[in-house]
């Protein structure tokens, strides 16, 4: 549950301007979908929000406080690939966030605190439809199940903001529809503000409360380097979607 504010943000790599004049207010509990052609800077935008990249100019505020310039526990993330850890079982993957939080030195929970965390993790796994797969390694799961696991893993740590980088892009249509249902439910049941990058317009309009399109306004070859992408469309979904109150 967090409001995000982009205050005249620019991102440049050397002479190459990727994004320019990005000003945006995201309300708490919103579900934002970022769309646009490839190379328009949506992923760069998400990386800045993640703290992996810093804006060249301007600043990003979360609840009025400037963003820490590195990834942190208040912003969870699910990538298209490599979001879960291949050396941990399904259960261990979900437990990891809790173990890192409470065990600073050895990074593992033991005894009663472990049992409590396991119970919680099992409940969450049941919710994302992964009951019975606790002891498998991610490589034994299908793509859809891996992304469900990634969602559960991110949510277990209780982030305020969830960032999704084309999370369902590699999935079959049927599986994608199922995971959309799950995503909606998770958004309603938790206190998340969600920012999702997608190249699938129908996915954007099906899930989001607000769809934001990035585009380069100037696309002639000699202009490409010096003009970055801007926000070209900012559409509130109607009828308005509002996250269920907790």
């Amino acid at each position: 549950m967090s409001a995000i504010r982009f205050d005249n943000v620019w991102k440049e790599y050397g002479d190459h301007i990727v994004l320019e004049r990005i000003s945006l207010d995201v309300a708490s509990r919103a579900f934002i979908a970022l769309v646009g052609p490839s190379g328009c800077g949506k992923t760069t935008f998400l990386r800045m929000l993640l703290g992996e990249e810093r804006p060249t100019r301007g600043q990003i505020l979360v609840d009025g406080v400037p963003l820490k310039p590195e990834p942190d526990a208040d912003r969870g993330v699910v990538f298209q690939r490599y979001s879960v850890f291949p050396h941990l079982t399904v259960l261990q993957n979900v437990l990891l966030g809790r173990e890192l939080q409470h065990s600073k030195i050895i990074g593992r929970l033991l005894g009663a605190s472990k049992r409590k965390a396991v119970d919680e993790a099992m409940a969450l796994l049941a919710e994302v439809g992964l009951s019975g797969h606790e002891d498998k390694y991610p490589a034994a799961l299908s793509g859809g199940m891996q992304q469900r696991l990634a969602l559960a893993q991110a949510i277990m740590r209780g982030p305020k903001i969830l960032l999704l980088d084309e999370p369902f892009g590699a999935l079959d249509p049927g599986i994608r529809a199922d995971i959309h249902v799950l995503m909606k439910r998770l958004w309603n049941e938790t206190e998340l503000t969600v920012v999702m990058v997608t190249h699938d317009l129908s996915e954007a309009f099906r899930l989001a409360t607000r769809v934001i399109a990035f585009e380069r306004s100037r696309n002639r070859p000699e202009e490409r380097e010096r003009y970055g992408a801007t926000i070209s469309r900012d559409l509130e979904i109607f009828p308005r979607r509002i996250a269920a109150a907790r």
Binding site: V77, Y82, L100, Q101, G107, Q153
Partner: peptide, 12 residues
């Protein structure tokens, strides 16, 4: 992605 993910889970 793995190293980023771990940091978003709060890992030092």
């Amino acid at each position: 992605e793995q190293l980023i993910k771990a940091q978003t889970l709060g890992a030092s």
